[in-house]
Design a protein around this nucleic acid. Structure first.
Lengths: 247, 247
DNA sequence: CGGCATCTTTGATCTGAATCAAGCTTGAGT
DNA sequence: ACTCAAGCTTGATTCAGATCAAAGATGCCG
């Protein structure tokens, strides 16, 4: 099973090679790379819990309130994670790409929903088994803690954005963030491809789709970005964009 | 040293007795109560790392960007946790009361600042030592993971509030949240005492202090709450308040 | 008790982004 | 190549909450 490759422990923390797509042994391994000392026994128990899955756009990986059955290690494609209010108002919590994890929780149920934006490939684990194995390997557990720490601090930074930044600052921050993620995947940092719609960006940034569209147009006419096609932008003046992103 | 009492392991997860103030052995213990099996050796190592501290209003427990030296278990008083933008815009991430933890992170540095609102008593640990001991006791570690999980899901719920809720929904949610915390501490759930200023509430809810004041006045004139003094409100119509809190 | 600083309330006005409203572009399916 | 639906852009208008402004309340300290 190909998925096993995702658990192979690599020596260092070398950057994920390929530009996002397909199987990427390093993506998964990098996330766990602190645990080079994990015994073969532990590793093979992990492998036994894993299963490779593919999801079509629109397919649901997790639904808010449902029992948290799985942990996913995304190996390709893009996922949106969101919460809904009773009356349908939606907040997108974040977007996940290759190398990201989903469903790590010690709660019984998922606290959010997650849906594939594009065709997604992922390595899926039984959550209880996963958490059980993690508990037995301190190195894995501290990797998990540091993942939570960084998720939490990202959530807090995003709160700051949502409450205190203007529409322009939010959109500029968003483009820079996607650019940084592209760079981490080894792709061209100046070419930002939006896999999500304007409406989804809006729901992530706390704006409306019209405001996102207008703001992108404004950044374009200021010469900070150039639009290749309706979903791809090139960053022309990174410095300027950073200045507009508000800290 | 009194602080040791905070680490005493209690049998169940019984609610913290006193209404917030002073030393409360159960508060600390409750947070760690899953680990009834921790050996005496582990417990005494924890105790050796602990130290009781008192802080005056305005004193800083942690500063964003500084080395994360300590973990605090708040035993009395109230703390505000916040982030700043370069130009001074402030976002309050949350308020902490007796029983809450601060500084649990696997990052080198604090990602936020924290300041005492009232006189605060806390049990302070050397963070590295604390994390080290935690790693050796799986029960402690999974308590920590579940704390992170709930912090993260609280942060995500707060994002939803910040982006999608109206001013009235935010203020109603805030009052209900404080009421729930009071109930957990064993205090009267219908009497909500605000230890923070209108400006601090505003910075937490993503509003201005004028809007918070106006909204409280509006809730008062609708008969949902009654004002005892400028910092204390009584919930008169909880059902109504819940309906106004938007999900 | 009195004086001063801090916090709170309320009113008047302004404004950034939402909402309402057309067209326009893109791409998948036939 | 044509059709239709989904997504995007742009314009006009509205509105919730911000900002500006000015009294009251509260409370601390000498």
């Amino acid at each position: 099973m190909q998925a096993r490759a995702n658990l192979k422990i690599v020596s260092g923390g070398e950057p994920c090679a390929g530009p996002g797509a397909g199987r990427c042994a390093n993506c998964g391994a990098r996330a766990l790379s602190v645990c080079a000392q994990v015994s073969d026994a532990g590793l093979s128990r992990m492998e036994a819990l894993s299963e490779e899955v593919e999801l079509r756009p629109g397919e649901i990986l997790a639904r808010e309130g449902d029992a948290a059955a799985h942990v996913f290690n995304i190996t390709g494609g893009a996922v949106r994670v969101y919460k809904l209010m009773a009356d349908g108002r939606r907040q997108i919590i974040g977007f996940l790409f290759a190398g990201d994890f989903l469903g790590l929780t010690s709660d019984k149920d998922y606290a959010f929903s997650a849906e594939a934006l594009e065709p997604v490939t992922a390595c899926r684990f039984n959550r209880k088994g996963y958490m059980g194995v993690v508990e037995q390997f301190p190195e894995l557990e501290s990797a998990l803690l540091s993942r939570f720490t960084s998720d939490l601090s990202a959530a807090q930074a995003h709160m700051l954005l949502l409450v205190r930044k203007t529409a322009r600052e939010r959109v500029a921050s968003f483009l820079l963030d996607l650019s940084a993620r592209a760079a981490r995947r080894g792709a061209d940092a100046d070419s930002v491809h939006l896999v999500m719609t304007r409406g989804e960006i809006a729901d992530y940034l706390g704006l409306t789709l019209e405001t996102v569209s207008r703001t992108l147009s404004a950044l374009k006419s200021k010469g900070a970005i150039r639009q290749t096609d309706s979903r791809t932008y090139t960053i022309l003046a990174r410095r300027q964009l950073e200045a507009m992103s508000g800290a």
